[in-house]
């Protein structure tokens, strides 16, 4: 999933300071799962903004809506009936959602309430870790199912570097050395000999070096 974390409330307060009527929009997908911008978080943020306006002696009108998927135009359309009643939109979706809303409703300012972090997997309740960089040319098939691009701090395709210490990355003991993990996994799979295959310099184009990525499926696109 795409992971995110709520921005500091003061930053959000700054964004919306000039506005009285706010449309606060959550998303039912990734940000719900990582507890950053789902219905629950929309409610809590709305309440926090209310408390703030009470202290400021102002009134604020907040309409809370959580869309099924904020990065999809057909769901973003559901905001149409409310958009004219709002001076500003605050989105709790990832950057894709924020931009989808901004693209559809051109006259309303749209502010992000979360910082989008990374593509990650859940390691347990309340813990998410980065697992994919979206490089566009997946190497997991030859690295034992562990990604060196996302999980090696230096993105080494021929690791490990000399900084590994007690099996952990040189950046700190809380980060596993990806190449230690790859090696252990290759051994488990009886594929140790694969380790000495040289991995060629990566073509970074599919992952964004060639410009913003775009996928067009001829059979689906209209």
């Amino acid at each position: 999933m795409i992971t995110a974390e709520q921005k500091p409330i003061q930053e959000i307060i700054q964004y919306i300071a000039p506005y009285g009527r706010i449309l606060l929009v959550g998303c039912n997908e990734c940000v719900t799962v990582c507890a950053a911008g789902g219905r629950k978080e929309v409610g809590l943020l709305a309440s926090a903004l209310h408390l703030n306006s009470l202290k400021q002696g102002k009134t604020i009108d907040i309409k809370e809506i959580t869309l099924e998927r904020q990065c999809d135009p057909e769901y973003v359309e559901e905001l149409a009936p409310y958009i004219d009643g709002a001076d500003a939109v605050v989105s709790m979706a990832c950057g894709c959602g924020v931009q989808s809303v901004a693209a559809r409703y051109k006259t309303s300012p749209v502010f992000p309430a979360v910082n989008t972090r990374f593509m990650g997997a859940s390691l347990g309740q309340g813990v998410w870790a980065e697992r994919c960089k979206g490089c566009g040319d997946c190497v997991l098939g030859i690295t034992g199912g562990i990604c060196p691009v996302a999980r090696c701090s230096k993105h080494l395709l021929n690791g490990p570097c000399g900084g590994t210490s007690n099996g952990q990355c040189e950046i700190g003991p809380e980060t596993d050395c990806a190449w230690r993990l790859i090696w252990e996994r290759l051994k488990e799979l009886g594929m140790e000999d694969r380790y000495e295959d040289l991995m060629n310099a990566k073509d970074w184009r599919p992952g964004g070096a060639a410009g913003p990525g775009k996928i067009i499926r001829e059979d689906l696109a209209q």
Partner: peptide
């Protein structure tokens, strides 16, 4: 009192 009540907002609060 709650900071929300100090600004004449009591009725709203």
């Amino acid at each position: 009192p709650s900071p929300g009540k100090l600004t004449g907002n009591e009725s709203k609060a």
